[in-house]
Amino acid sequence: MANILIADDDPILVELVKFRLEGAGHVTSVASNGEEALDQIKSDKPDLVVLDAMMPIVSGPEVLRAIKSDPETKDIPIVMLTARKGEADVVTAIRSGAAEYLTKPFIPQELLVRIEKLLKEVQ
């Protein structure tokens, strides 16, 4: 069981991801904008973050860079889950430290399998 932060401003997508992760035994928390995500990451230190690229206040790529540049949070795996499908978006996210990059629409079971694989790798 892992503590997973879902950072996305789409409440329907958040509920879908929460349902899938909690059904697999994980504990979830939610941030609806990038600033809230950074605050929660610093205070709660989740085991993994599911991060959207297009969020209000602070964008997903900015959140990713902040997480990976902080020695206290740099080892938290980040799964980008976003509608941004451009080659530059994918390459930039991976180079910035994202462990996985999935595009919307996505297969919920695939997301779960990728998350569980990442969690096993970091244990």
Rank of each mutant, 00 (worst) to 15 (best):
L38Y: 02
R84C: 09
V27F: 14
V91M: 10
A88R: 15
A53G: 13
R84K: 15
D89C: 10
I41K: 00
L111W: 02
Q40E: 15
I67K: 00
L13P: 07
D39T: 13
L38Q: 00
H26C: 06
M54H: 07
K117A: 15
P71C: 10
L102W: 04
K74R: 15
V17D: 01
E35G: 14
S69M: 06
K85V: 11
V14R: 04
A37M: 05
A31I: 00
E62Y: 06
K85T: 15
P71E: 08
E116Q: 10
A7F: 04
P71V: 14
G25P: 03
T82G: 00
P108E: 10
T28A: 07
A83V: 11
P11G: 08
G34L: 01
A88K: 10
L5I: 04
T103H: 03
S96I: 06
V91T: 15
V90F: 11
M1A: 14
V91L: 14
P71A: 08
I67D: 01
P11K: 06
D70P: 03
V14G: 05
Y101L: 05
K45L: 13
I67R: 00
N3H: 15
K74H: 11
A83C: 12
L16H: 06
T92G: 10
T28M: 10
A24M: 09
S43F: 08
L81S: 02
L119Y: 02
A66M: 07
R84T: 12
V17M: 03
L21N: 02
E87Y: 12
D52I: 00
S59H: 07
D70K: 05
V91P: 05
A98Q: 05
E121H: 12
I115H: 03
L5Q: 02
A53M: 15
D8L: 00
K104G: 04
V49R: 01
S32P: 06
D44C: 14
R95E: 14
D39R: 09
I4H: 01
K104E: 05
A2Q: 04
G86I: 05
L5S: 00
I67N: 00
L5H: 01
Q109A: 12
V27H: 11
I41S: 01
K117P: 08
K104Y: 05
D89T: 02
P105K: 06
E62N: 12
S59G: 08
E15L: 13
E121A: 13
I57W: 09
V27K: 10
D9F: 07
K42H: 13
V58L: 09
K117Y: 10
A31L: 03
V63M: 04
I76T: 03
E36I: 10
E62T: 11
R20I: 15
E116S: 04
V63P: 02
D89A: 08
D75S: 12
D75V: 11
L119W: 01
I57M: 13
L48R: 01
V90T: 12
A37V: 03
L21V: 06
M80V: 15
S43T: 14
D70M: 05
I115V: 13
D47E: 13
